[in-house]
Amino acid sequence: MIFSDLNSLIMVFIYGIIASAISFLTVYFAMPKAIAFLLERGMIVQDYHKSERPKIPRPAGPILIIGITLSLMVIYCLTFNEKILAILFSTVIAFLIGFIDDKKVMPGWFKPVALLIAALPILLLGAYDTNLNLIFGNAFIPLLYIPLILIAIPVIGNTINSIDVLNGVASGFILIACIPLIISVYIFGSVEVFLASLSLFFVTLAFYKFHKFPSKIFPGDSGTLLLGTIYGAIAITGKSELIAIIALLPAIFNSFLFLSSVKRVVEHREITARPTYLTDDFKLAASKDKKAPITLLRLLLVDGPLSESELVNKIFKLAIFSSILALISIVIQYYFVLGGKI
């Protein structure tokens, strides 16, 4: 990102405040109304990890998409950059796919296959660069980059979806992983995508207030798929693909563990042998069943049962660790790709 003068720096600062304020305030003030609306309509699910089994409204996806759409539309009106449109369209498509899954039980293949459509706006609007930043330099990969986009969006969308197993994990994880992404996009990407990354951060920050332990609302598939997809779309359009992968390593490792033990694309609800179980004092414990899939949660519980909040803290520690590794990678890439110059 190059600032030609002080005026352009001030403009970016003002645009950043506008984008952040719109995204944060929309979600912050609309979410309590959405919670009341969903409770009134009986759109609730039980929180099985608590003794009193509270009924939690779901999904929060529609409010998140309103916050992101408003913020990205304002950024587009200020910058007229097609990358913003590509991020917006991809996110809306992912939200719609998740919303269908929220309303109707779909087979396991539905989300990964349908998310291929969410990758199309990035390709059709040409919102990508064929030079892939590889920490120690970049590689020109005109042919490989297109299938890479088609793989990246479904993988990241489903990765965030599959880590949403405890109160506040999906939103908290994205929040932590957003910090290296924002810095990377600021250094290696463009002003416009940097503003979009601020929107994602502030939408997630406002949502975390309601999603953190004990949750007042669940994101649903519509919420997690849109958060994962916008994260992936920002990483691609902001030339920060590898940095984003490093920041998401614990979540990607979780998906890898699950897929390599189940050996097929399947919904969690279709699994008969559960990876964890609830003890009598409502703590989570690792399953001893050899047929149960291996997940990050199961590995975190091998030392003994933990309460939900203790387990969430452990996942956040892993997210902070991978984000630190992503920050170290940014420093290395900064010297190798830009030669220490912004």
Binding site: L134, I135, F136, N138, P250, V302, S322, L325, S329
Partner: peptide, 25 residues
């Protein structure tokens, strides 16, 4: 603790990614 082991695994994956990146470049 097993958290240390998981940090180690994440660290090894990160290092492998850096090594692959260097090889590709």
């Amino acid at each position: 603790s097993n958290l240390f082991n998981l940090f180690l695994i994440i660290g090894v994956i990160w290092f492998t990614l850096l090594a692959i990146s260097a090889f590709l470049v």
